[in-house]
Amino acid sequence: MPRLAPLAKPYPPEAAAELAQMPADIGLFRTVAHNPRVLSRWRGGGLLDRGSITLRQRELLILRTTARLKAEYEWGVHVGFFGAKAKFSEAEIVATVHGDASDWNAEEAVLVEMADALVDSGTVDDALWQQAAAHYKADQLIEIIALVGFYHLVSFTVNATGVALEPGAPRFPAAQ
């Protein structure tokens, strides 16, 4: 049961204006719409456009971050919307939740390690930074950090407010 129910139609005018600009009608956005200013900032600060890293790299970071933070809602939404576009295999989807860096190629393993380090400690050590810098340019490193940070915020929001899982969205897989 949600702690904060998503807004229902008819929406207050300011919330309706913000929700009309969101990419999907999902519970998360309708929950955050309790504060249209915050929803506006989320939309303005969104990182789902074409960035300096590939869609697959972006989604790996998001899936790993949300899985580590036990945000099943957001993990499932991203698997459902982007999993096929990112060309993740079923084993890779499972690895975003239950795997480690050894489940990925060297370039993707760095992303998993970056997400894990940022979730665990809020930083990365020098050795991991050097490893990441060997694969990614400065603008990409900033985007990697920003994605993990933004999806930390999203995970906090869905977990704290109790946003109900979207109908038909994937659930966390069982460990294999």
Score class of each variant (00 low, 15 high):
L128F: 00
A86W: 08
Y73V: 10
T31R: 07
H135G: 10
H152S: 08
R58S: 14
S155C: 09
T123G: 08
A133M: 01
F81Y: 11
K85G: 08
H34C: 14
D103A: 12
A160R: 01
A134F: 03
R41K: 11
A132Q: 03
A71D: 04
R58C: 13
Y136P: 03
S52A: 15
A106R: 03
S89N: 12
W104Q: 02
R37N: 10
G46H: 15
R56K: 10
S121W: 01
R41Q: 13
G83N: 08
R37T: 13
A71Y: 10
W42T: 04
Y73H: 13
L28I: 09
A95H: 05
A24G: 15
M22P: 11
I26E: 15
A84E: 15
R43K: 10
I144N: 00
A132R: 01
L63Q: 07
A115T: 03
T123C: 11
Q130T: 06
A67F: 04
I144W: 06
T123Y: 12
H152L: 08
V112S: 02
R43V: 00
A33N: 03
P36I: 00
V112W: 03
Q140E: 14
Q57R: 09
L28E: 02
R64L: 03
A134I: 07
D49W: 08
S89I: 12
R30V: 04
L147Y: 08
G27W: 02
D103Y: 02
A115N: 08
W104C: 05
T54C: 11
T96C: 09
A95R: 01
E143Y: 12
L63V: 05
Q130R: 10
A95L: 02
Y73C: 05
I93G: 07
V32M: 07
E74P: 10
T65A: 07
Q131H: 08
R58V: 11
K70T: 15
V97R: 12
L118P: 00
D25A: 14
R68K: 14
Q57W: 14
Q130E: 11
I142K: 08
D120K: 07
H98C: 04
V154S: 02
E92A: 11
A33L: 06
Q131R: 15
I144C: 01
A106W: 00
A91I: 02
V77H: 12
G149H: 01
G51M: 12
K87M: 04
A109N: 14
G99T: 02
N105R: 06
L61R: 03
I142R: 11
T54M: 11
L60T: 03
H78A: 14
V110F: 07
A24Q: 15
